[in-house]
């Protein structure tokens, strides 16, 4: 019983980390209807940046978190400006083309990271002790990372729902033409959304690398993780995304404990495909439209 409770707590804490990973993708998808296939690679890049900041400058992972986020913000802005905005502006067949573009981007980011950091697994040691809560021991690192992720997600959520700039992101997601007729520069909103989403990926990476070692090829898996969450939780539905993140965290922790890490990796994909099959209309809700 104690094991189950411990696992449940671990799962819920992992949920916080997943939530941050997915919220960035959710934001980008919501505003631009583009799935950034390099999202996972951005997460890995953020983690590896944190690794270097730790290894070269001795920076605490929590201090590396904003720096990694900032660097990814810049990269995201560059990608949106140079790659995705021209495709969006061209209009027709935008979905296919932006998929191909981010598919290519994912390889560029992963292999550029490979050139810099090599192919070995990297990790950042952080708060390796455990917090004792009665008979239950919780890894301090996971607790800190999870709380940081929850805090960051909450801050961004507050920013999105209370400030006029945040609301203009929502507005653009719901009707770009409506936003433009309000005098909102939708191009700038898209730039902001993509940069912010990328920053969240970078920040999440800086936290996750303290928990699991990263390799440059981990990105694809993380993209699927994040996408599973937004498919499961529902677009723009923050409560749904949170619920999905917790479910995924629990599933993974339990699968790892009872089935082993290899099978746990497969379970995630099975959940993913099951989600797609049960909700084939997905976030788009295109079924039956004539």
């Amino acid at each position: 019983m104690l094991t189950v409770i411990t696992l449940a707590i671990l799962g819920l804490l992992w949920g916080g980390v997943y939530l941050l990973m997915a919220t960035g993708l959710n934001l980008i998808y919501g505003v631009m209807k583009v799935v950034n296939l390099a999202h996972g690679d951005f997460i890995v890049l953020g983690g590896l940046l944190a690794f270097s900041l730790f290894a070269e400058a001795g920076l605490n992972p929590l201090a590396a978190f904003p720096i990694a986020a900032l660097i990814l913000f810049g990269i995201g802005a560059g990608v949106q400006f140079g790659l995705l905005e021209p495709i969006t502006a061209a209009g027709s067949e935008g979905e296919l083309r932006s998929l191909l573009a981010t598919f290519g981007l994912s390889y560029v980011v992963a292999n550029a990271s490979f050139l810099v950091w090599g192919s070995q697994f990297q990790s950042v040691p952080f708060l390796e002790g455990a917090v004792q809560a009665g008979p239950i021991a919780i890894p301090a690192g996971l607790l800190a990372a999870s709380l940081a992720a929850f805090a960051a997600t909450l801050l961004i959520h507050l920013w999105l729902t209370t400030t006029i700039t945040g609301k203009s992101l929502h507005a653009t997601a719901q009707s770009a033409l409506g936003a433009a007729s309000c005098g909102i520069d939708v191009r700038r909103v898209r730039l902001l959304a993509f940069a912010l989403g990328s920053a969240m990926a970078g920040g999440a990476g800086a936290l996750v690398i303290t928990l699991i070692p990263f390799q440059t090829s981990t990105g694809g898996e993380l993209t699927v993780h994040a996408f599973t969450l937004i498919a499961l939780g529902g677009l723009g539905n923050y409560a749904g995304a949170w619920l999905a993140a917790e479910l995924l965290g629990l599933t993974e922790v339990f699968a790892q404990f009872y089935l082993g890490s290899n099978a746990a990796a497969a379970v995630i994909y099975v959940v993913f495909i099951a989600v797609l099959v049960v909700r084939p209309q997905g976030l788009l809700g295109q079924a039956g439209r004539v």
Binding site: L83, I87, L100, A101, G104
Partner: peptide, 12 residues
Amino acid sequence: IVLGGLTMLIAV
């Protein structure tokens, strides 16, 4: 990297 970059270029 080059192949990925080429995919991006073609898409754009």
